[in-house]
Amino acid sequence: MSTDSLPARPGEPPLLPDQFDDALRARLAALDAASDTHADDQRPDNTTRAYRSDWKTWEAFCAQLQIPPTAATRGTLRAFVDYLWNREKRAYATIDRKLAGVVVTLRRPPYRVLVDPDDTEAARQLLKDYAKKAAEAEEPERGRGKAPALRLVDLQLIVSKCDTDIFGLRDQAMLLLGFSIAARRAELAGLRLRNIRPDDNGLLVHVAVSKTDPRTVPVPYGRHPATCPVRAWQAWANAADITDPDRHAFRRIHHTGSVQPQGLTPQRAGDIITAAGLRAGCANLFTGHSVRSGMATEARRKGKDRKAIAAITGHKPGSKVLDGYMQIVDQWDENDNALIGIGL
């Protein structure tokens, strides 16, 4: 038996990669494959679906150019941006995400193609230039744009318009708890009963399904019973008879009113929030992300520290997204608006 793959003796230098024998290389390749499979299993379903869609778009584009999909160069990536912007009329955020999806997919098996970061940056710079020219030409903004923040006054109105039946109880609980934990729609749909633990002061909600790191949010009792997230959750859980800790916290409901064992998809969770806003007659078209931006915006309006807000939203220090929420409020603050108090 070859001893080349055995650990080095004390005092001997470790083997370098070009000294590995075939048996060790095979073991390392098997470990790589197993780790890839495990990482894929951990990736959120919506991310996997998005990457799959991005790759299909890239394959169709490459077929038109009669090039293999592994030919990701500065020229082909720029051409891809041009194709999506000028022919497909896609939104800026969509094109940026598709670029990322293509690069990530190429990096993984079976392709294992590492795209030069400078080539990717060149394509992104072209996209920025297109967007800048479109703005200068006063072209209509593409895509849905940012989700409008669900302000507290709107939340109060929407909750008050919810029915008192099982559908209304679920919608109230989703809106109020989603607002309180600054939930993305996938985070709301991913909650299990075991993630929501009662506490003397309210609830401890562990957001395990997240784009970023998991977080635990302490949700206190509300001052007003009608908008209290804790009471709303308890009312829904009791009415739906949710007892299995491994089942979803928010479920599908049959049109007859019977609660189903299946959980909601992220898309359906967002649709429920949108529909609730429409029923209440709100001027803004709220989406699944509106409860998240709404919580951050309202907390800032009340003078809450950005670190305290980030602890609930899960944003990293210096997050540009969180900065965007802060700017909504801070633009009218006398300490952040240089025009206020100067004598105009």
Rank of each mutant, 00 (worst) to 15 (best):
M1Y: 00
R9G: 11
P10S: 05
L16V: 00
P17G: 08
D22T: 11
A23I: 09
A23K: 09
L24W: 00
R25Y: 04
A30K: 08
H38S: 00
A39D: 01
D40H: 12
P44Q: 09
P44E: 10
W55F: 11
F61M: 06
Q64D: 10
Q66W: 07
T73C: 08
R78M: 13
R78A: 06
D82I: 01
R90H: 09
K98W: 05
K98A: 07
L99I: 11
P110V: 06
Y111W: 14
D119G: 05
A122W: 06
L127F: 11
L127P: 10
A131T: 04
E136Q: 14
G145Q: 12
V153C: 09
Q156E: 15
L157P: 04
V159Y: 02
K161C: 14
D163V: 04
D165E: 09
D171P: 02
Q172K: 15
G178H: 02
I181P: 05
A183Y: 04
D199M: 08
D200W: 07
L203I: 11
L204E: 11
P214V: 06
T216A: 10
T216F: 04
V217C: 09
P218M: 04
P218Q: 02
R231F: 12
W233S: 04
A239K: 05
D241F: 13
T243G: 14
R252P: 01
H254M: 12
T256I: 04
G257I: 09
A269L: 09
A269G: 08
A269T: 05
D271N: 07
A280H: 08
C282I: 09
F286S: 06
T287Q: 02
G288K: 03
H289R: 05
S290D: 01
T297R: 12
K302Y: 10
A308Y: 02
I309P: 02
I309C: 03
A310V: 05
G314A: 02
K316M: 08
N335A: 15
N335I: 10
D336F: 13
I340C: 10
G341Y: 08
G341M: 07
